[in-house]
Design a binder for these strands. Structure first.
Lengths: 239, 239
DNA sequence: ACAAAAGTGTTAGTCATACACCCATGA
DNA sequence: TCATGGGTGTATGACTAACACTTTTGT
């Protein structure tokens, strides 16, 4: 099954135990200091040298698409259990200039703390960009990012979110800012509190913030059972 | 670009100006006499002879995936402007027994009246099945149907539906039954009326049902502008 | 007259919104 | 004592669910 061939993009000879004409591209989201960010990779070689794009890779002949996406992300980020979901296939005939390649888009949610760049990438190769600061990316990667944002906005309204984006312990304001940032709206603090607390999604801890120059907020964590239950059942978080 | 090769499934020699290892499969929904139905095809040749599955086809090298799906469905059904949306890619390594093939799932909504079987299919080759009557299909086609149903159920709660499933003129009860059938629930007639009418989605016609053995219901049609607006903006139809 | 579905009215309760206001803490 | 964010209270209005009720039409 394995064969050697020249990668048309990089010019390098690579091992070919992967599927032809199909790739995977991932939009990796994180949340840091009130900003929603996406991990981008700077291409070092080939026709797209110096340009930024989404991390991606090939699908091995004997692995499922989901497994391929998981493998690619684990190799890149070092994170085992990240949240990962397929978006859809992107396949305009001219999306990749050298050949007809269809790509399957994924999006992932990770905590920045867990993140650890791996495998031949240096800090200058891979960088977090605020979603508002993303410029023009290679190929159709801007479309994939746009589509992933739509999906994320939809998801946040119908299922709990934050488990894979916030630290273990967080304040209600942090959670609210996550919603505000994803949905790009302003929320009313008192009403947000009530809405979230009524869901019984959070466990209130006997702990408070430290080292803040204002009244310390209570810390919460997610009730994992309830989180899972609401993920399956869904809800309406209207704005 | 064009080459001849032997199709492993059917054994037939077919023209090969299409992408390798990638197919399209479509779940075509219709609504008939209160039932949600799916179009299935009986395979006449190859390893899956006599079994039922979803209609599908190949992607030509120079067409987009969406165009391929449109072409395949137009050839099959004769319908020009059907509602069509990509689901996602399905790619378990063993989903197709003879080779590694990834398929891109689509779902379509059609009016049965518009429908007209084409291109080498006879009535015994292609048949409408009630969703509750779908048995075991070839490959992973049951997963694709299940996923399309989930997507349809989600869609019906957040955007207007019916334009591509109901006749031009319809009663409120027909629309309600469509919701009931898709969501698999019972609705309260008076409350459904108010909810839908409040959306201003329908234009009331000065026409009534004929030949019914009870009080004739008023006929409605969709306000296309409003339908489109609500499709883009989205809404919440909670149950 | 009766069956069957169309269509209206009413009530009680829940929920979202908007905003006023008090609390705790570090600088 | 002031700025900053944490957190509570409350009045209003909108909407939903449940169900009783009236209307129309063919048989």
């Amino acid at each position: 099954m394995t064969k050697q061939f020249i990668d048309e993009e990089s010019g390098k000879q690579i091992e070919k135990s992967v599927m032809n004409s199909i790739t995977i591209d991932c939009v990796i989201f994180t949340f840091d200091e009130g900003n929603l960010e996406v991990l981008l990779i700077e291409h070092a070689e080939g026709i797209s040298r110096g340009k930024w794009g989404l991390p991606g890779g090939w699908i091995k002949k004997e692995e499922s698409i989901d497994n391929a996406a998981n493998r690619i992300l684990q190799d890149l980020t070092g994170i085992k259990d990240l949240y990962l979901e397929q978006l859809k296939a992107f396949g305009e005939p001219d999306r990749f200039p050298l050949d007809r390649v269809i790509t399957i888009g994924y999006y992932a949610l990770v905590k920045k703390d867990d993140f650890d760049i791996k495998a031949g990438f240096t800090a200058s190769d891979a960088k977090w960009y605020k979603v508002s600061d993303i410029g023009t990316l290679i190929y159709d990667h801007n479309s994939i990012v746009d589509y992933s944002l739509e999906r994320l906005r939809n998801r946040v309204k119908h299922a709990p979110i934050g488990f894979n984006l916030l630290p273990e312990k967080f304040t209600l304001l942090q959670l609210m800012q996550l919603y505000e940032e994803i949905l790009n709206i302003k929320l009313d603090k008192p009403n947000f509190r009530r809405k979230i607390l009524k869901m019984k999604l959070l466990v209130s801890l006997d702990e408070k913030q430290t080292n803040v120059s204002h009244r310390a907020a209570k810390l919460y964590q997610f009730d994992t059972d309830r989180y899972e239950m609401l993920t399956n059942k869904g809800f309406i978080f209207e704005v």
